[in-house]
């Protein structure tokens, strides 16, 4: 049985998943304890995963990575797409508890309101792993660990690269910043990390910082005004690739050469951003990787075997210069 599990194509996994979901629907009504994933007893780990939705290319890559890694690790994945709604996600987690999956993992849509459903999971003795986003529960025993990017570190890596590049600068270096959605964790943390890093050189000064809402249109609109208000801009730090891509058009329209007249640093490393980096329009990208599938499966196995895991685990991430982008681009999945 186990050997067969490692082989079957994903279609079979989906069939099993669909069957299990059907079974739960019935079990939920009949209040039967024998329904659900009786297949979990053959030694295969069953993982219930609830995804936020499919709002961006980043998220799609995240989903693909988790599905592929589960197949590779021989873990039975029950995947649920919450379509950006907390109630869907709570429903999915309750279903997972009823199905008696071995481990539950999810990317919370929002930070608050998880205590009740997480307690239900704990009472059923099912360990929970958070991915990508955290929850604000005071009771840290509700989940085993949080696997995700360190946004402060991303900002810091971007800032440190800039400090290294401009260490020979004698005069002031003017920086403009395109922030993400006001109040969002990535925006707050990337801003903080970047500011901390560039404090190392008093010549580096942020002269303007506005929210571009993580969108291309927002980045472009804000950059247009930055360019008019500040005749001399040396560096642009954008909290994601998309705002940077929008700003590129504003910079070109202002008759400047992006990547040369203005050094552009962004975060994320999605495909379009990597292309701009390889083309010499961006100068540096700090990666925010969605490919946490293999790390997650590793953790699932550890948690299932009762091993101790750290309460906070960072996604393995890197940074890209223009040369590295040229090399990495052909294999880029998202």
């Amino acid at each position: 049985m186990k050997r067969m599990r490692t082989h079957p194509p994903s279609r079979k996994v989906i069939a099993v998943l669909a069957a299990a979901l059907l079974a739960t629907g019935v079990a939920a009504c009949g209040n039967s304890d024998t329904g659900g994933s009786s297949g979990a007893d053959d030694g295969t780990i069953t993982l219930g995963f609830s995804q936020v939705g499919a709002e961006s290319g980043w998220r799609t890559a995240n989903t693909t990575s988790i599905k592929e890694a589960a197949t590779e690790a021989g873990i039975d994945l029950k995947f649920d797409d919450a379509q950006q709604k907390q109630e869907n996600q709570i429903k999915a987690i309750r279903n997972f508890v009823q199905q008696k999956v071995d481990v539950i993992a999810f990317s919370p849509v929002v930070e608050s309101g998880w205590d009740t459903v997480l307690k239900e999971a704990r009472d059923a003795k099912i360990p929970v792993i958070l991915t990508d986003r955290s929850v604000d529960s005071a009771d840290k025993s509700l989940y085993k660990t949080f696997l995700g990017s360190d946004f402060v570190k991303e900002g810091r890596l971007a800032g440190e690269w800039l400090v290294e590049q401009k260490k020979a600068a004698t005069g002031p270096v003017t920086i403009v910043e395109l922030q993400g959605t006001t109040g969002s964790a990535p925006a707050n943390d990337r801003k903080k990390g970047f500011a901390e890093a560039i404090a190392a050189n008093p010549n580096l000064k942020i002269v303007a910082s506005q929210s571009g809402d993580f969108t291309r249109a927002g980045g472009k609109q804000v950059m247009e005004q930055f360019l008019k208000a500040n005749p001399k801009i040396d560096v642009l730090f954008a909290h994601n690739d998309d705002m940077g891509l929008g700003a590129l058009e504003a910079i070109t329209a202002a008759g400047k050469v992006p990547g040369k007249d203005i050094t552009i640093i962004t975060v994320d490393a999605v495909k379009d951003g990597m292309q701009a980096l390889a083309d010499g329009k961006f100068n540096f990208i700090a990666e925010c990787s969605p490919l946490l599938g293999p790390q997650l499966m590793d953790l699932v196995e550890k948690v299932h075997n009762g091993e101790e895991v750290p309460a906070r685990i960072e996604t393995q991430e890197t940074t890209f210069t223009q040369e590295q982008a040229k090399e990495a681009l052909p294999n880029r999945k998202y």
Binding site: T182, S209, Q210, S211, Q221
Partner: peptide
């Protein structure tokens, strides 16, 4: 109004 916020660099927290 939107352009003014950007041009006068009113901080995003107070711009709304």
């Amino acid at each position: 109004l939107t352009t003014t916020v950007y041009a006068m660099n009113i901080s995003p927290q107070t711009s709304l």
